[in-house]
Amino acid sequence: MLGAGLAAPLLLHHRDARAQAAGASAFSDRPLRYICPFPPGATNDNIARVMSRALGERLGISVVVENRAGAGGAVGARLVAEAKPDAHTLLNASAGNLVIAPHLSAVGYDPLRDLAPVALTGEAYSIVAVHPSLPVTTIAGLVDYARKNPGLLNYASAGIGSAGHLRGALLAEEGRFDAVHAPFPGSAPAAHSVVAGDCHLIIDPIAAPHVRAGRLRGIATLGPDRWDLFPGTPTLTEQTFGEAWPNGGWFGLFAPRGTPDAAIAELNRHYNDSLADPAVEAALRRFGLRPIAATPQELARRVAADHAESGDTLRRLRIA
């Protein structure tokens, strides 16, 4: 007991010295809640688990992923928007629940007012995948088949207001064919519905492992360039589709409005450091994400621009 008592001041001195050297932290020792607004197994969930571990290591605290799914990601986003702004409740957002879903229903939050941008995770690749029984191998073939079989095709998505929902509607509009939207409570069950043959088509990165395993057929990819997991699969734009589509393919970290600037700056620094870690980058790329570091201000401008563009598109499609 005497030895422990003598050692305690020394340990505290070393801890304080480390804190002073690194700069005062805005975070206490209590766990940080990392809200994933989609079910386990979804792309958002996979990314949340990679980044929560990386962020926890750099902050020196426990970062716990909580899945709060529902309403195309709006349930989890609202939870964070209404949370105490103490930097201990964060949202792993995808573009869908910030720039699409708020145009479609009363989600209970304003993404431009009620959430504070923290850091961009990166641009998301995606893949247009069909059930192998569908006799198509290209976008042109899909369009031709859909036109010859009016009203037959349906497409699965992670829910109303998800990026997959909007992209499916845009593909049908550009291809001038009818398709029925089949929303699911997350991208994993949506992909499984296509694997089972209950749905014909999905546009989502979650389909990638099914394509690689031969359970689905990839006919196009979406992203800034060809997806390195599928170098032989042409992009949508290479097949003369999707050039005017709004950009709904990104993930980012957000906090409640009113979170102190110092805490956001600290989170941004650690988050961007994590993105530069080769192991983290490799993990994110496996899930179809190209990491991109950005400031909170750059992310705020991105959200505002994509929110406006998606709203215009949804109204044109008469979805909103």
Rank of each mutant, 00 (worst) to 15 (best):
M1F: 09
L2T: 10
A8D: 11
L11Y: 05
R18E: 14
Q20P: 02
G23T: 03
A24S: 15
S25V: 03
A26I: 10
D29T: 10
P31E: 08
I35L: 10
G41M: 12
A42F: 05
D45I: 03
A48V: 05
S52D: 13
L55I: 12
G72L: 04
A74S: 15
A77M: 04
R78Q: 15
V80W: 02
V80F: 03
E82L: 13
D86Q: 05
A87I: 06
L90E: 00
L91V: 04
S94R: 02
A95T: 09
G96E: 08
L98K: 01
A101E: 08
A101Y: 03
P102C: 10
A106E: 15
D110L: 13
R113C: 11
L115Q: 01
T121Q: 12
G122R: 01
Y125F: 15
I127M: 12
L134K: 01
T138P: 06
A140R: 09
K148C: 10
S157Q: 08
A158L: 12
I160D: 08
G161D: 11
G168E: 05
R176W: 00
H181L: 15
F184K: 11
P189L: 14
A196F: 02
D204L: 07
A207F: 05
A208K: 09
A208D: 10
P209V: 10
V211L: 09
V211N: 00
A213H: 06
A213Y: 04
R215I: 00
P224M: 09
D225A: 14
G232W: 06
G232H: 13
T235N: 09
Q239Y: 06
L253K: 03
A255I: 04
P260M: 13
A263C: 08
N268Y: 03
R269A: 15
R269K: 13
Y271L: 09
D277E: 10
V280E: 02
R290E: 12
A294S: 12
A294W: 03
Q297L: 12
L299W: 00
A300F: 04
R302Q: 13
A305W: 00
D306M: 07
L317E: 11
I319G: 02
